[in-house]
């Protein structure tokens, strides 16, 4: 039997092209090449499958040109005629995860080729695509590559062969919302009582119906009179005073910073920079107003369009930062903003 033909999608980083300075790398087809994590997949496939080509695309390029990048990559996949398409794994890289989810679900839907990706459960690509394409749950950094490949390779082979796919907890993919009817050995009443007894005894138990987490916050009323409003700037783009006095980490930030901008009318290359390690810092370092628009806000303040620009701004680095951390920082920031009489917030993200 001939080997299953696989096309693999990776970003500029895993293709060894470069980091953020190369994130605007357009989609590129490399027939016959096995690149980076593709080697681990090939090894795990053994005699059953092989990678016949790799597609590389920069994360920023993909996300800023979603339609074109998707169309171009679909065309490349079509030319190589694989039996299976694998994207990533993307771990906790947000733009990479969104790219993997987008392209894997597009290949599956538009070309009818079974597809698989993998990422960390907090990656934004999960909420967007987990219901559209199989997504293996991985660790949050590339240190989890071996574990990811070990789970992805067998599932990928099953998909390519059209074999039945078991439940998410057996196969290791992120629950996709599909429910399958089957007969349990024990009846419901007994299972419920067993679960209750475990709960009462403080032991671990697994619910059969996890409650969906609908965490939406209703919009607050609009600002009535801008000319009297005190507006604050907050950013996840890592803008800090030059030298990064609080040592905010370039990824997985453990803190946020509060910075006084009293009298500051313009952020310059000499005074401010970015601490963010998840995008090309050249533009923000040259002029941080491109991320945190202090110059324009000062003009609007002077012209009386807004009442006042709050004299403190808040910044953290939203690069691989845990959702729980971001939540805690923002709750504390909001408390301070309210205590200072701020009426509304402009939050910028990169």
């Amino acid at each position: 039997m001939s080997k299953i033909k696989v096309v693999h999608y990776i970003n500029q980083f895993f293709a060894n092209i470069g980091g953020e300075e190369k994130a605007d790398y357009p989609a590129e087809k490399r027939p016959g090449e096995v690149v980076g994590p593709g080697m681990a997949f090939n090894a795990a496939f053994g005699d059953e499958a092989e990678i016949i080509g790799t597609i590389v695309c920069g994360d920023t390029y993909f996300n800023e040109n979603v339609d074109k990048a998707t169309a171009d990559i679909l065309e490349m996949v079509k030319e190589m005629q694989p039996d299976l398409f694998i994207a990533g794994p993307a771990f906790n890289a947000g733009r990479y995860g969104v790219a993997c989810g987008t392209i894997a679900s597009a290949v599956q839907e538009k070309l009818g080729i079974p597809s698989l990706t993998g990422m960390y459960v907090e990656n934004p690509g999960v909420d967007m695509y987990a219901s559209k394409v199989y997504m293996v749950s991985t660790k949050n950094s590339a240190a989890g590559m071996r574990d990811a490949v070990k789970k992805m390779a067998p599932l990928a082979l099953k998909l390519a062969k059209g074999e039945a796919i078991g439940a998410s907890c057996e196969e290791g993919y992120i629950p996709n919302g599909v429910r399958v009817n089957f007969f349990e050995e024990e009846r419901g009443s007994k299972r419920a009582v067993d679960m209750l007894l475990k709960k009462l005894a403080g032991k671990a138990y697994t619910t059969e119906y996890p409650m969906p987490a609908f965490d939406r916050v209703a919009p607050n009323p609009a600002v009535k009179d801008l000319s009297k409003a005190k507006i604050a700037l907050v950013t996840s783009g890592g803008i800090v005073p030059k030298g990064n006095p609080d040592h905010i980490e370039s990824s997985s930030a453990s803190k946020f910073g509060e910075y006084d901008i009293t009298g500051v009318t313009d952020l310059t290359a000499d005074t401010y920079e970015t601490a963010h390690g998840g995008y090309d810092p050249v533009y923000a370092n040259a002029d941080a107003d491109r991320v945190l628009p202090v110059d324009v806000m000062r003009d609007l303040e002077k012209e009386g369009v807004i009442g006042e620009l709050h004299n403190k701004y808040y910044a953290t680095v939203g690069n691989g930062t845990a959702v729980a951390s971001a939540k805690a920082y923002a709750a504390e920031i909001a408390k301070r903003l309210i205590a200072d009489g701020v009426d509304a917030v402009i939050l910028t993200s990169t």
């Binding site: 996300n63 607050n220 701020v342 993200s349």
Partner: peptide, 29 residues
Amino acid sequence: MVKEIERAGLPVVHICTVTPISMTVGANR
């Protein structure tokens, strides 16, 4: 972050390039 600031009672607008992510995290404006 946007959602937590909104939850605290402040109207907030999110300026960002990848708007689908902003939708996913629950920004309102």
